[in-house]
Design a protein around this nucleic acid. Structure first.
Lengths: 203, 203, 203, 203
DNA sequence: TATGAATGAGTATTCATTCAT
DNA sequence: TATGAATGAATACTCATTCAT
């Protein structure tokens, strides 16, 4: 019944995850049938249950697989950077970039994962927090270095930045005719948070 | 078959909307039975279908009812204000405040409504845009008055601000032990956007 | 609860019967809603239950009303006739004629009344038998007078003749483009039964 | 979704058809629950939907299965016969015989299938016509051979004969205490149509 | 491992009927 | 009498999950 760790790396496990991601993104989790996923993955319905406990587990696994990837990728990209401002900019750019490159996954994460209070309440606390904490770590480092204002609560700010970036990404993914590039969006978000909206006082 | 306009104001219509909001917030839309809503509203199952076309219509109606209320309330509160900075601050504070006073509704809007690509795609374009445009109007007014930076695209900024505020609100609603007050959160969001994260340069 | 005899003659009772006949003929008994009948009759749903015990009673009443009319009409038309051959011809012609003039009623009787074993079993025995017996009476009279063959069982023959005429009528009612007139059909049925199919032996 | 041709021959398909025939004959189509059929067939409710599109499809399938059988059987039995009179006699006898041997099926065809104008209108035109045309073919052959009267329209006569035989069969099936044998009925119907009702003129 | 036929619990919706007005 | 809003029992159909092969 329990899915052994070795299965996770197997080719079929990945094929099913990818199929599920595609199907859930297109039709929504509740409107997707396990049979749809099986068909997309070119396996029999029953095969899915050799790799996943149930339909919910499929969704949770997509979440865990991708949030891990996201976290690792971001951590790698900011590893050598010392300037907290540059780190934050890289986070913002990278998150948008990852969303762009994994639109189906992003849609599943952003929309479908929120579908049920159940998932939010159960999973908000684990791997997702690790990802969010990348942002608060940057902030606290910046505050320690005297670059960022100390009167800001990093627990609040991490949420605010994540919310801003993620909403932007969601909008961008769903928008059919792209009215602006993601690079432009990334630059503006950075500017807004780092410089603020106010017209800079001329020295 | 169509639900007449006069029914919308009726006592029973409101009773059902409120019951549905509560039930959907608690158990999620897809995990709620129409019978649950009926029971909560103290009406028979069939009665719901005298006021709503089907279960989906119930969700959509919650959305339309509340987004209208939100829009009107915010517009009223910023009507007399002239300073765009103050206007933006009021929007942020008010949105958080409305969420706090209508937590069930907020949860349904933020979580359940996003559950389905269908709803997002169909409804993102209408009343929701009106609400978002309150923000872009403030921005453009601020840019015209020379208070806000002109290099920022209001179409992007409105999304960023909304995302930030809404994510914050969602987090706050779902958080069981409140680690900070909403007033504090509101103040920090305002600060971040208006002043930026950087330590102010001492003149 | 019981529907008083005086109601039967009332204008509203007749209006409802007519509406039900029309609606049942168009959509079938099981696919018709009591509300449809009410609408067609321009009365409230509840009003129907002042005149009829329930939906079944509506169907049964249509049957009883019309079979009475049919029986009386046929009896009247053959009253003065003495020749059994002529009587039989009149019955055939008249039945087809009555169907033609009351197509909705005929459809309800022929199709809808057969819909349920329940109705058939309960009602085949009563007023319908009176109608069928018109035919067997004619036959027996003919046999007594030496006009019809005595080796035929009138219990069988009455069914055969009724079945033939009624199937014909059903076909004719349902046929959209009439390929032959009802007069022609009536003449041929008479010929068939009275003369037989064989080529008459030339004396 | 579509039921593949190979399923039609399968054991389970036949088991369900038989169960449905029995249940529909007993309680009527509209008063039968799909669950009743499943129970009678000793399968799960859902299994029915692996073999049939929906409840209507079950009724239609009973019709198609049996009308095919009837048509083939009758064609086989009259194949070698040359005398049209004998052919007609065989048709009449055989139809009654088939009804007697398949009373449940016959009841479903005769009563339940007629219940809905929908079925009649959709299906009257196809396989049923093939069956009816057996009769008109016999008639036309008889007319060509100079055995049957040429003044009779075979389109009318086929209906008349079918109606007569079928009504007879229906009556016989529903009759609890059989007042006459089917052989007797068959003989009388043949006599009536072939010789006519009139007392034969003595040469 | 893999299959996919079979299962049967679960539920939105309909509509005949009632009853307070 | 007449109304029509409210009721709630009834049921076709779906689909996640199982298990014999």
């Amino acid at each position: 019944m329990a899915v052994s760790a070795e299965k996770i790396g197997s080719e079929k496990y990945q094929k099913i995850i990818q199929a599920a991601t595609k199907v859930f993104a297109q039709k929504g989790f509740y409107n997707s049938k396990v049979a749809d996923v099986a068909k997309e993955a070119n396996v029999a319905d029953g095969t899915i249950y050799l790799y996943f406990k149930n339909k919910d587990d499929l969704l949770i696994s997509i979440f865990e697989e991708s949030i891990d990837t996201f976290t690792l990728e971001v951590q790698k990209q900011i590893a050598g950077v010392t300037d907290p401002v540059e780190k934050l900019a890289r986070f913002i750019t990278l998150h948008l970039d990852l969303v762009r490159s994994n639109q189906d996954t992003a849609q599943v994460l952003q929309i479908e994962l929120r579908q049920s209070t159940k998932f939010i309440k159960e999973y908000a606390g684990t791997k997702f927090k690790d990802y969010l904490n990348i942002v608060s770590d940057i902030l606290e480092e910046g505050q320690a270095k005297g670059v960022f204002r100390k009167d800001l609560n990093s627990a609040i700010v991490k949420r605010v930045i994540f919310g801003a970036v993620d909403e932007m990404a969601l909008e961008w993914v769903l928008m059919k005719k792209k009215k602006y590039s993601m690079e432009e969006a990334a630059a503006q978000i950075c500017a807004m948070f780092i410089e603020g909206l106010r017209v800079p006082k001329v020295a």
